[in-house]
Design a protein around this nucleic acid. Structure first.
Length: 432
DNA sequence: TCTGGGGTCCTAGGACCC
DNA sequence: TCTGGGGTCCTAGGACCC
């Protein structure tokens, strides 16, 4: 039975190979070529163009293993350029939003919109969205439409996997007969659904539940008792009952803030780790301040490489309750530096991070003058941010972070494209 | 030599309260 | 010998997302 005309529907719009597509927008020479986008430090593959996927390159493959064969296969690599992707994402989302009264931006490359209309009307609308986004941003998108978010994802998988649907770029789950829908669900492994990954997938396989159709046939209450309310909702959504609402309002405040990075070369000494922590703390303080929040609890950690076979793994960690909820870089740096005392000099650490939790909106409880820790209330954060805004990252640093030359462990991004939409001096030149 | 980063949600279990 | 019960709050850890 096809859904009643004008019933509320949800469309999931996703960008095809988003990072690779972004790289192509300002570099047409990448068209029709296998493009891979690398993680920070040019570590491993985090995104691929269709051509690269077709070569069978596994997601997450280390670049140092791919690099030797890349040239021979015509593979082009780019360092990830999140500033560019974020900027293009905002434009894509804005264009999508023009076509619907309800929109939830789900991730950097996915958006849900709420729609009403017949199957034919909504498929037409999906086509218009594709054309509009392509014309305004150069990014290809695909559209899956269904009564629930989970089924919209199923419809989108159809667009990705069926050649005729890929041609159109739009799939409406309601356009199929019940028999066809069952066949579609039976063709989708459970682990392709939202909320079902490896662990859960193995537990479901033990119960002989392998496909979306198998899962849809389960009793929702039983799935809740045996697994969780999350899986219960998935079952109900697969059966067409919306359980996961469209969330239009982006959340105003985050629950936690993390700054963590791998090093381009291992850090082995206490002074170097102090420098790492000072720089990370300053970055984090800056983010926290621009989010309009303060933190009360801080955790700092470092770890050795999980791939190293020649040394014992070591992951020291410190947690501290800050004297007052704060966004002051000095207080955050001081809390983080305790970690430097815990490292074993000579051990090779490959990454570190600082996590702020127990966040709250800034300005809720002002500390009385003189009662806070040293540095509180001196507005060091805004001053540092202002200097960085004017003279660039690295132009000023706190304590151990304030060194003139860039540290040797700093992130490597050798194949970085220009930030063509956010920096005047990196604009693209077009010759006619 | 070289393997990413930043989040959220849910549940179980302990602390604590009356 | 026999030793309550119901509720909330908080946290850690697991699992998942892109």
């Amino acid at each position: 039975m096809s859904p009643a005309p004008r019933e509320a529907m949800i469309a999931l719009v996703d960008c095809a190979s988003f990072y690779a597509s972004c790289e192509r927008v300002f570099d047409p020479s990448l068209e029709n070529r296998p493009v891979v986008v690398l993680s920070n430090n040019d570590g491993c593959v985090v995104a691929m163009s269709q051509e690269a996927k077709a070569l069978g390159i596994p997601m997450g493959m280390p670049w140092f293993k791919l690099e030797p064969v890349a040239a021979a296969q015509g593979i082009v690599a780019r360092s990830s350029n999140y500033e560019l992707y974020g900027s293009l994402s905002a434009r894509v989302m804005e264009v999508i939003g023009r076509h619907a009264a309800w929109q939830e931006v789900y991730s950097i490359d996915e958006s849900f919109i709420g729609l009403r209309g017949t199957v034919e009307e909504l498929v037409q609308l999906g086509r218009r969205i594709r054309e509009d986004v392509a014309r305004c941003t150069g990014i290809p998108v695909r559209v899956g439409i269904a009564p629930t978010k989970t089924l919209a994802k199923v419809a989108l998988l159809g667009v990705k996997r069926s050649a005729p649907l890929a041609e159109v770029g739009v799939c409406h789950f309601g356009g199929y007969s019940p028999t066809q829908r069952d066949a579609i669900l039976a063709s989708i492994p459970v682990t392709d659904l939202w909320g079902v990954a490896g662990r859960l997938g193995r537990r479901l396989a033990n119960l002989n539940i392998h496909t979306a159709a198998d899962l849809a046939a389960q009793d929702p209450g039983q799935m809740r008792r045996r697994f969780s309310v999350v899986l219960e909702r998935t079952v109900r959504e697969l059966r067409g009952t919306p359980c996961i609402p469209l969330e239009e309002e982006p959340r105003q405040y985050k629950d936690q803030l993390i700054y963590s990075r791998s090093f381009s070369e291992p850090v082995t000494t206490t002074p170097a780790m102090r420098q790492v922590l000072s720089i990370y703390a300053q970055q984090l303080a800056s983010r926290l301040r621009s989010a309009g929040q303060q933190a009360r609890v801080l955790t700092a950690w470092a770890s050795t490489s999980p791939f190293a076979t020649d040394q014992e793994p070591h992951s020291p960690q410190v947690s501290a309750v800050l004297p007052v909820p704060t966004a002051e870089p000095l207080t955050i740096a001081r809390g983080s530096l305790g970690l430097a005392e815990l490292i074993r000099p000579g051990t090779r650490y490959v990454r570190a991070g600082v996590v702020l939790t127990d966040l709250r909106p800034a300005g809720q409880a002002e500390t009385l003058p003189g009662l806070g820790p040293p540095g509180e209330g001196r507005q060091l954060g805004p001053t540092l941010d202002a200097v960085v805004a004017r003279f660039g990252v690295g132009s000023i640093g706190l304590g151990y972070g304030g060194l003139g030359t860039p540290p040797s462990w700093q992130m490597r991004r050798a194949m970085l494209s220009p930030r063509a939409t956010t920096h005047w001096d990196e604009l693209v030149t077009v010759r006619l």
